[in-house]
């Protein structure tokens, strides 16, 4: 396997705080990885070090097998950073064209306008764009050099629903072309939708790492809910195999379990008085909350 990114005990200490704490991580080429975590978890600091924008306090970074500050490596990457606005007195198409000239094998201007959905705005001054449109321009700049590895730091903040959809489609298309995509997000839906792999980060450490379904299964698992008959008690439900939690809402009850298949069989077998049964997969939102809380505790 080809590693796009290798981190070895990467650490960054800022004013006595360990923003990134001995993070070791390998990202295979051609995968879409989401770094997920609350604000201040260390996602952006980790990305800054991978890109060579910040010097690690200790530990090692390898990007495409080399040093991120090497011009040859930079020619093969692209990034959309946070808190980067647009430059004054240049039109959208001029800004994209400027970036195309930095790279050896750029994508065509028309294609970049298409994937960022900015064809209608190409002759506008970049500073006249809305916040969401400026983020899309940032994406076009990140993709300008047809990068092998693209970093997207909170890419869809400020984008409307339609822009976000177009953006997701483009990222998926990049993944099918074998590109490595690293994105940070706190939109869980985004991570769930796009990523092959989710790395959950809190307090500068990796607290969970796996496919979206693994992350979900290992935490809250799934939920069975039904309207319970009068005879059903919390005690009888908690006695069932694999039940991790019981939640009541009037006569409606929710059972949490990592394995709902055997739980439903047990419920039927014990002739529990149930109506309107529903089985749901626990959302990533719940999984994420559970992870962060358990790491805090």
């Amino acid at each position: 396997m080809n590693a796009a990114i290798q981190l070895e005990k990467l650490t960054k200490i800022y004013k006595g705080i360990r923003a990134v704490d001995e993070m070791s991580l390998t990202v295979e080429a051609g995968t879409v990885v989401a770094l997920l975590g609350p604000n201040g978890a260390g996602k952006t600091t980790a990305i800054s070090m991978i890109l060579g924008l910040q010097e690690p306090t200790s530990g090692k970074v390898k990007l495409l097998g080399g040093d991120p500050r090497d011009q040859k490596i930079r020619n093969r990457i692209g990034a959309m950073l946070q808190e980067v606005s647009v430059i004054d007195n240049l039109k959208v198409s001029e800004t994209i064209d400027l970036f195309r000239h930095y790279y050896a094998n750029p994508l065509a201007l028309e294609q970049l306008l298409l994937i960022s959905g900015l064809q209608g705005e190409k002759d506008k001054m970049a500073t006249a764009l809305s916040g969401g449109q400026q983020r899309r321009l940032g994406f076009a700049l990140a993709a300008a050099g047809d990068p092998e590895v693209i970093f997207l730091d909170e890419p869809t903040v400020g984008m409307d629903v339609a822009s976000r959809q177009l953006f997701w489609d483009t990222v998926r298309a990049m993944a099918t072309r074998g590109k490595t995509v690293v994105l940070t997000t706190h939109y869980l839906e985004e991570a769930d939708n796009l990523a092959d792999r989710i790395v959950v980060i809190n307090h500068g450490k990796v607290i969970a790492d796996g496919t979206p379904s693994e992350i979900k299964a290992n935490t809250t698992g799934r939920v069975i809910s039904f309207t319970a008959g009068a005879a059903v008690t919390t005690e009888s439900l908690q006695a069932l195999p694999g039940v991790t939690d019981v939640e009541w809402n009037g006569k409606r009850v929710k059972l949490f379990s990592p394995n709902t298949d055997s739980l439903i069989a047990a419920l039927v077998q014990q002739r529990i008085d149930m109506r309107d049964i529903e089985i749901q997969s626990g959302g990533l939102e719940d999984a994420f909350q559970a992870l962060v809380q358990s790491a805090n505790g």
């Binding site: 890109l51 060579g52 924008l53 991120p68 011009q71 040859k72 930079r74 020619n75 990457i77 692209g78 990034a79 950073l81 808190e83 980067v84 606005s85 647009v86 430059i87 004054d88 970036f99 930095y102 790279y103 050896a104 700049l141 050099g145």
Partner: peptide, 21 residues
């Protein structure tokens, strides 16, 4: 003014990750 805008808007940071020396 151009220098100040480039610096305050993070533009220089973005240029540092491009192959532009």
């Amino acid at each position: 003014q151009r220098i100040s805008k480039e610096r305050s808007q993070g533009w220089i940071r973005l240029l540092r990750i491009t192959p532009l020396p």
